[in-house]
Simulated assay, not measured.
Amino acid sequence: MPVREFTDGLDLDEVLLVRSVDRLPRRDGGEYLKVVLGDRTGSVPAMIWDGAADALPLLTPGRPVRVIGRYGVHPRHGAQLTVRAIRTAVSGTYDLADICDGPALPLGRLVAELRALVAGVDHPHLRALLERIVGDDAPDWPRYRDAPAAKHLHHAYRHGLLEHSVTVAQGVAAMAGTFPGLDRDVAVAGTCQAG
């Protein structure tokens, strides 16, 4: 079940991706773990009150783990998952594409929208240049298509550069008509190839 569909009181046994881990002190001198877990639909804080030392080796950011616990919405602390057990995620029991961050639109649609933007460039030399950079047969197209837009802050996932470039180019195309003297083709070409 996707994180965004979790409801108060839900018992779950899911494979989620570890986003971050914090070791925090308990009043009794021990420690507990506050972990952020997620999938492509969102993330949720998770508390591991018991067995922190045993769970810690499995909790590497970017690693999928099998999580058994209960999701709840606390009046004071908000939404969180109370973890009863953490297990190694067994290959074949999950699809990595479902738990890793990714673009909001499917890849095929992003590519189609990029192709429509390129086709809408009237200047033949600019359109030819774009085809050499982002066309289906362009040597660097696979790397461009799959690249993240950034390492950390925005669109930092596979196909992130493509998603960012398409959304910025669509905005530029829509706004180009409102600015006298702005060459729409140059503006769209600049954003399609550079993000």
Rank of each mutant, 00 (worst) to 15 (best):
A156E: 00
L96S: 12
P148D: 03
T88L: 13
V168C: 11
A128G: 09
L105C: 01
A104P: 01
T88P: 09
A119D: 11
L130K: 03
V172R: 01
D95H: 15
Q170L: 14
A116P: 05
G135W: 03
A112E: 15
V172N: 03
R145L: 10
V168A: 05
G108R: 11
D146K: 05
G102M: 14
G160H: 02
E131N: 10
L81P: 03
P103N: 10
G135D: 08
G78S: 13
G78Y: 06
P75W: 04
A138M: 13
V118Y: 03
L114F: 06
D95N: 15
E113F: 02
A97W: 14
I99L: 10
G171N: 13
M175F: 15
P75N: 12
V121L: 10
L96W: 06
V166F: 02
E131W: 05
E131S: 08
A169N: 10
C100H: 13
A112Q: 12
A104F: 01
I133D: 09
A85K: 11
K151F: 00
R87Q: 12
A156N: 06
T167F: 04
S91W: 00
P75E: 14
G92D: 06
G177S: 11
G102Q: 13
Q80S: 14
A156K: 03
A79Q: 08
L105W: 07
P75G: 12
C100G: 07
L162M: 10
L81C: 06
A138C: 13
L96T: 10
V111C: 09
G108W: 08
L161C: 01
G177D: 13
L114T: 01
L105R: 11
L114W: 01
V83R: 02
A147F: 00
Y94R: 10
D136N: 02
G177A: 10
L153A: 08
V118P: 03
D95R: 13
L110Q: 12
R143G: 07
L162H: 10
L110S: 07
A156I: 00
G102I: 07
A138N: 12
E113C: 04
G135R: 02
G102A: 14
A112V: 03
E113I: 01
G120H: 11
L107Q: 08
T93E: 15
R132N: 15
S165E: 09
A128Y: 00
A150E: 13
A104D: 12
R84S: 12
A97S: 15
H154Y: 02
R115E: 13
E163N: 06
A112T: 06
A104S: 09
G92H: 11
R158G: 04
V118E: 02
H159C: 14
T167V: 00
P124I: 05
H155I: 03
V90G: 06
R76D: 12
A156Y: 00
A79G: 09
T82Q: 14
V134R: 02
D140V: 00
L161E: 01
A119S: 12
Y144S: 05
V111Y: 04
E163A: 14
V172H: 02
D101F: 04
E131K: 09
G102E: 12
V134F: 05
V111H: 04
P124T: 06
Y144D: 08
Y144I: 09
V118L: 11
G171H: 08
V83W: 01
H152F: 00
H164E: 05
D95P: 14
P148N: 05
L96N: 11
G160L: 06
S165Y: 02
L126E: 01
A138D: 14
G92V: 07
